[in-house]
Design a protein around this nucleic acid. Structure first.
Lengths: 239, 239
DNA sequence: AACGATCAGATTGTATGCAATCATTCGGCA
DNA sequence: TGCCGAATGATTGCATACAATCTGATCGTT
C-alpha cells in the first residue's frame, strides 16, 4: 500500500505539483525560504522525490503568483520585490481590500463571525508568544485574517487576488520589514470585525485602509541594504 | 517619464509556451474558440508543431488565468463561466477598475492621452463597420481600452488583474451577451477619458462604474441558450 | 601580466515513452 | 428489451533522455 497522500481533498489537475506548490508557498510566506534563494529543479525534485516535470509545474505556478522569479536557462529564485513593486503591491491592496471589506460588511453572516472570532483569538495568542517561530506564525495568521475577509466577501476571484497579494506582502515584509509591530500595537483586525458586525461598509473599508497604512508604515523601503546581504550575493553583478 | 511598462511582466522562460499561450488567449478573447471547446494537448501540439510539454505549460498558464478549465485525466477546455462566476467577475471589475480609474486620473500624462485617443479612434472605426469580424474586433478593442486604462494607472499588479478580468469578461460576453451594443450606443469610453483629462478621479471612477453597469445590463445571465448550442453539447451540467 | 577565446560543467528547455485513469462501447444476463 | 459489467480506445500524468544555453575557468596570445 502506497500511503503518500493521506486524506486531503483531491486537486483536479497535477495533484503533486499543486501539493509541492503549496509547500513551497508556505515556506516562502513563513520566511523559511528567504528572497533570492535558488530553487533548483533537480534539488527540489530530490527533496520531494518527484521528477523535474512536476517541480517545473509547481515553480511555474509560483511564478504566476509572483512569488518566484524565473530566468531563462538560469533557474528559479524566490522573488525579491523591489521597493517600487512593494509600493504597487500596497496600492493594489488598498483598492482591492477596501472593496472586499465593503462587500464583506454586507454579506457576513453569523457563521462568518464565528470564524473571525477564532482567527482573532489565534492571532492574539500568537502575538503573546515570543521567539522567531511565533513571529512567523503571527505574520501568517495576520495574513489569514485578510484572506478570511476575502472569503467572507464571497467573491472567489477577488479572494484569489487577495491571496496572491497577501503572499507577496509577506515577501515584502521579509525584505523591508522593520519591527513587525504593525499588527501588534493595535487591535485593528478586531475593529474591522466590529465594523462588519455593525453592517457598516464605509467604516469597515476605512478601517482596512488605515490598517494597510500602518502595515506599510512599518516598512523601510529606502534601504536596499540590511538584510539582503544574503540576497545581494544571489543577484546579478551590481558594480 | 518612461513609466510605460514593458507589457511582458515576468517571463522570459518558455518563450514558445508563452507564444502559444498568447495565440490561444487571443483566439479565446476574439471568440474564435468558443467556451467548451476541447484543447487537446496533442492536437494543439500538432498545430503549433511543438511537443505536448510546451502545450502543457501554455494550457497551465491559461488555466491560472481562468480562461481554460483543466480536468484531471480528461483534458483542457475553454472555460464556460457560470452566471455566478460572471456576477463575481463584474463585481470584481467594479471594485478594481474604479480604483484604477481614480489612479489613472491622477497619473495620466500627455503621452497617455495620445494613446487613449488612438484607442478611441480605432474603436469608433470598428464600430462603424459591419459583420461578425468587426464585432469581434470591436469587443477586443473595447477590452484594450480598459487594459490601457490600467496601464496608465502605472500599477503592474492591478494591470495584470485587469488583463485577466477583461479576458474572462470576453468569455462571459460570448456566453451570455445579447446584442453587443453595450459600448455602441454611448461614447462612455470617451467620457471616461474626458474625466481623466479634467483630473477628476471621482468622476472617472463613477463613469467607469456606470459603464460596467451597462456592459452587465447587456447580458442575459439566466439563459444558457444563444450561441452555446455547439457548446452545450460539449459540456456537462455545470449551472 | 592582462585580456580574450575556447572548453568544461551545470542547469534549464524540449521531446518522447510508459503508466494511470477515464469515457465509451460491446457483450452477457435478467 | 433493458440494464450492468468488462474490455478497449483515447487522453492525460509522470519520468527520463537528449539538446540548447549560460556560467565559470583554463589556456594561449599580445
Amino acid at each position: 500500500m502506497t500511503q503518500t497522500a493521506p486524506a486531503e481533498p483531491h486537486f483536479q489537475p497535477d495533484d503533486r505539483a499543486m501539493a509541492i506548490r503549496d509547500q513551497l508557498r508556505d515556506a516562502i510566506v513563513e520566511h523559511r525560504l528567504v528572497p533570492g534563494t535558488k530553487l533548483s529543479e533537480v534539488e527540489v525534485g530530490k527533496l520531494f522525490d518527484v521528477s523535474r516535470t512536476v517541480v517545473r509545474a509547481a515553480l511555474q505556478s509560483l511564478s504566476f503568483e509572483g512569488l518566484v522569479r524565473a530566468e531563462r536557462n538560469r533557474g528559479a529564485f524566490v522573488a525579491s520585490p523591489s521597493p517600487e513593486e512593494a509600493r504597487q503591491l500596497f496600492e493594489a491592496r488598498r483598492e482591492i481590500e477596501a472593496g472586499i471589506a465593503r462587500i464583506a460588511a454586507e454579506r457576513a453572516r453569523h457563521a462568518d463571525f464565528m470564524r473571525f472570532d477564532a482567527c482573532l483569538k489565534e492571532e492574539t495568542r500568537l502575538l503573546q508568544e515570543r521567539g522567531p517561530a511565533s513571529r512567523r506564525a503571527a505574520i501568517r495568521a495576520s495574513g489569514e485574517f485578510h484572506i478570511l475577509l476575502a472569503e467572507v466577501a464571497g467573491n472567489a476571484i477577488m479572494q484569489r487576488f487577495m491571496e496572491e497579494l497577501i503572499a507577496r506582502s509577506s515577501l515584502v515584509i521579509a525584505l523591508y520589514g522593520r519591527t513587525g509591530a504593525s499588527s501588534c500595537g493595535h487591535n485593528e483586525h478586531g475593529d474591522i470585525v466590529a465594523a462588519l458586525r455593525d453592517r457598516d461598509p464605509d467604516r469597515a473599508s476605512r478601517l482596512v485602509l488605515v490598517h494597510i497604512d500602518h502595515i506599510e508604515a512599518d516598512l523601510d523601503l529606502r534601504g536596499i541594504n540590511g538584510m539582503p546581504l544574503a540576497d545581494a550575493l544571489n543577484l546579478r553583478a551590481s558594480t
